[in-house]
Computed example of a mutant assay.
Amino acid sequence: MQKKFALAAGAMLLISSVQASEWGYEGQSGPEHWGDIAPECSLGKNQSPIDITRSVEADLSPLTVNYTGNLVSLTNNGHTLEAHVEGDNSFTINGNTFTLKQFHFHTPSENLIHGKQFPLEAHFVHADSKNNLAVIALMFDVGEANPQIASLISTLPAKGDTITFDQSFPVSAWLPRIGEDYYRFSGSLTTPPCSEGVRWFVLQNNKDLSQAQVDVLHKAMGDNNRPIQPLNARLVLDAD
């Protein structure tokens, strides 16, 4: 059965009016045509992703992350590899708690930092009690092989399939040290319907993966990155 999703940076769990089969990353269904099926993709003023070329230093609270659950399964939904989690996984900012719904990947990265595009970006998608969305974005650069990714890609699902892991993997192992090392800005979903009002937290500390791991993930997902969008009047806040 075909499901409808509101996709935050590639995938989301909230119901949307946009069919996943109506959009893609190339040709007549590519990003330049998303506005035909979801007007905010072309009319919105606070769209994601962006190139973080300038920022304003701000006295922002540290991100208090409390991931104690596990990654239990992985779905290839045709647009991304989406990891499903269970247990208590949340983060708190300014007294507001956001619960992790899933995380997924983009090859290459959607957001850029000072013009640099990374080979892989992970989006940890959260929602609070009022269904406000927040995304923690983590960049990966080529270096040493990543043990979490090694476990993830040992068996990859085919398009439309889900695999369940015999062994659970701690979600906390995926993130680097965060604290105040992040950029914050207001943005949108990076896929149709491109809804705005999403809180974005782009981490300044990266993790490594090997080129071979990049190649495996890229083969599974292809180029699934939306082009960068105009910053317009937004400020990017630097908590560092």
Results as ranks from 00 to 15, higher is better:
residue 45 K to M: 10
residue 47 Q to T: 01
residue 47 Q to W: 02
residue 49 P to E: 09
residue 54 R to F: 15
residue 56 V to A: 06
residue 56 V to P: 00
residue 58 A to H: 12
residue 59 D to S: 15
residue 60 L to W: 01
residue 61 S to H: 11
residue 61 S to K: 10
residue 63 L to Y: 14
residue 64 T to M: 00
residue 65 V to E: 13
residue 66 N to K: 14
residue 67 Y to A: 09
residue 67 Y to S: 12
residue 68 T to G: 03
residue 69 G to T: 15
residue 69 G to Y: 13
residue 69 G to V: 12
residue 71 L to I: 12
residue 73 S to H: 09
residue 74 L to W: 03
residue 74 L to A: 05
residue 74 L to S: 10
residue 74 L to V: 10
residue 74 L to H: 02
residue 75 T to M: 13
residue 75 T to Y: 01
residue 75 T to Q: 08
residue 78 G to W: 05
residue 78 G to K: 01
residue 79 H to N: 06
residue 80 T to W: 09
residue 80 T to V: 11
residue 83 A to P: 06
residue 83 A to E: 05
residue 83 A to D: 00
residue 85 V to N: 00
residue 86 E to G: 04
residue 87 G to R: 07
residue 89 N to K: 04
residue 91 F to D: 06
residue 95 G to T: 08
residue 96 N to E: 14
residue 96 N to R: 15
residue 98 F to K: 05
residue 99 T to S: 07
residue 102 Q to Y: 13
residue 102 Q to C: 11
residue 104 H to C: 01
residue 108 P to Y: 09
residue 111 N to Q: 09
residue 112 L to G: 02
residue 117 Q to T: 14
residue 126 H to N: 15
residue 126 H to G: 07
residue 127 A to D: 06
residue 135 V to H: 08
residue 136 I to R: 06
residue 136 I to W: 06
residue 138 L to S: 01
residue 139 M to A: 04
residue 141 D to C: 04
residue 141 D to V: 03
residue 142 V to S: 05
residue 142 V to C: 10
residue 142 V to Y: 02
residue 148 Q to G: 04
residue 151 S to T: 03
residue 151 S to W: 15
residue 151 S to D: 06
residue 153 I to M: 02
residue 154 S to A: 14
residue 155 T to W: 10
residue 155 T to Y: 12
residue 155 T to S: 12
residue 155 T to C: 07
residue 156 L to P: 14
residue 157 P to L: 06
residue 161 D to P: 00
residue 161 D to C: 08
residue 162 T to P: 04
residue 163 I to T: 04
residue 168 S to W: 08
residue 169 F to V: 04
residue 172 S to G: 07
residue 173 A to W: 07
residue 173 A to G: 14
